[in-house]
Amino acid sequence: MKGVLLVNLGSPDSPEPKDVKKYLGEFLMDERVIDVPLWARTLLVKGIILNTRPKASAAAYKKIWWKEGSPLIVLSERLQDKIQDQVDLPVSLAMRYGSMTIKKGLQELVDKGVDEVFLIPLYPQFAMATTETILVLAEEIRKAHFPNISIQDLKSFYNNTNYINVLSNSIEKYLESKDYEHLLFSYHGVPERHIRKRDITKSHCKIDGSCCVTASPAHEFCYRHQCLEVTRLVAEKLNLKEGSFSTSFQSRLGFDPWLQPYTDRTIERLGKQGIKKMAIVTPAFVSDCLETLEEIAMEGEEIFHEMGGKDFTTVPCLNDDKEFVDLLSSWITDWAKTETVTA
């Protein structure tokens, strides 16, 4: 029997410091998030970050927390429910970090008789700290606890024509009544070394402004290329004029070089250049979360206003948008028609 497991990033159980600390500890100790030797990661995370950051992060979570719970969890559950209404297979939901574990999600499917799982990482682009860490952990859990099931995964869909159409339609519909001068595509940042580490050619990725637009097998696992390609394809679909849009990367951590330009500095620059009305979309996320609702919609707007900007519009993520639900459901239905793979 076939079933589906949707996997998103995760969330603390509450916006209280103790729960945020527990969540951050699991998240930041992942070797694919902070990819330094264990001793250095332990010193950084447990010795410094977890003694300073949870209180501030908890305050940020409290700003965006809903009555129903964490926005990311609530929105992911809505997506799950709407997909379940459209497909004949069991659909479960799990998170890479937090209490809604991948093990629980797989167990839920196994209890329903599922022995072949279609795992859908809810990330359009591939990255070490998102798609890869989900796939690696899922396989570890399968081997240790569910050796009789098989898992197939949905590949990165950043350049899928139907996805680009859905994303473009969502942006266009939301902005059709808005007046803006510049559209900023803000993606979650990653350290530059992550890009080089996942260069399967070992030589292509130089992050020099040209490698991402030069065809290469490396692009299959290049987060930077995939982000820039989403911007290019959406801009082409929406007929955006050159100079009226740009790409940036948010949420950097630590002192190592991360992908640039940085979102906060880009917002600041646009304000200083005289842009009075800007819109911002966050295509690395399919569900609104702390990084979109607080970091962009609140902190970003504050920066823009401080620089003289007037109107700041944040485009919602796809969330449980009907076209997005229809698209994921169609992919699931197509997969369900394929021949069964023996574990």
Rank of each mutant, 00 (worst) to 15 (best):
I267H: 00
C222S: 11
L50T: 02
D288W: 02
K103C: 08
I141R: 00
G309K: 00
Y187N: 05
Q273Y: 11
F255G: 13
S248N: 12
H219Y: 11
K143M: 10
D199M: 07
D208A: 09
V4I: 13
N165H: 14
E181G: 09
S246Q: 08
E172I: 10
L43V: 13
Q84I: 10
M307I: 07
E294D: 13
C212D: 11
L5A: 06
I151E: 03
E172R: 15
V281T: 15
A56S: 12
T313K: 07
K310D: 15
V281H: 02
L24C: 02
S186C: 01
G105K: 04
D111G: 11
E16L: 13
L154A: 13
S246L: 08
A336Y: 06
L119R: 02
D208K: 09
K67D: 15
T42M: 10
C227M: 05
T282C: 14
W331K: 06
L137F: 04
H194I: 10
L106A: 07
P54R: 01
R53D: 04
E291T: 06
A284G: 14
Y180P: 04
F27V: 02
N162Q: 14
S57F: 03
D85Y: 08
F146T: 03
L253F: 15
I34R: 04
M95H: 01
V117Q: 03
L75G: 02
G98Y: 01
S11V: 03
E229P: 00
D326S: 14
G113I: 14
E192W: 05
C289D: 05
V87R: 09
T201V: 13
P257Y: 08
L328T: 00
T131Q: 07
S330H: 10
D115T: 13
E268Y: 12
H219V: 13
N169V: 09
D30E: 07
V4H: 01
V74I: 12
L167Q: 10
V45F: 05
F118V: 04
A94N: 03
L9N: 00
K155S: 13
A56M: 10
I48T: 13
V117P: 00
S170E: 08
A279H: 01
E294I: 02
V190E: 02
A127F: 05
E192A: 09
V87Y: 05
G300Y: 00
R252S: 12
S99W: 06
S246K: 03
S57L: 04
T313C: 11
L135F: 01
Y262P: 06
T247P: 07
V36E: 11
A336E: 14
I280T: 09
N239S: 15
F126V: 04
T161P: 11
M307S: 14
I102Y: 04
C212L: 12
W335I: 06
A60C: 05
K63T: 03
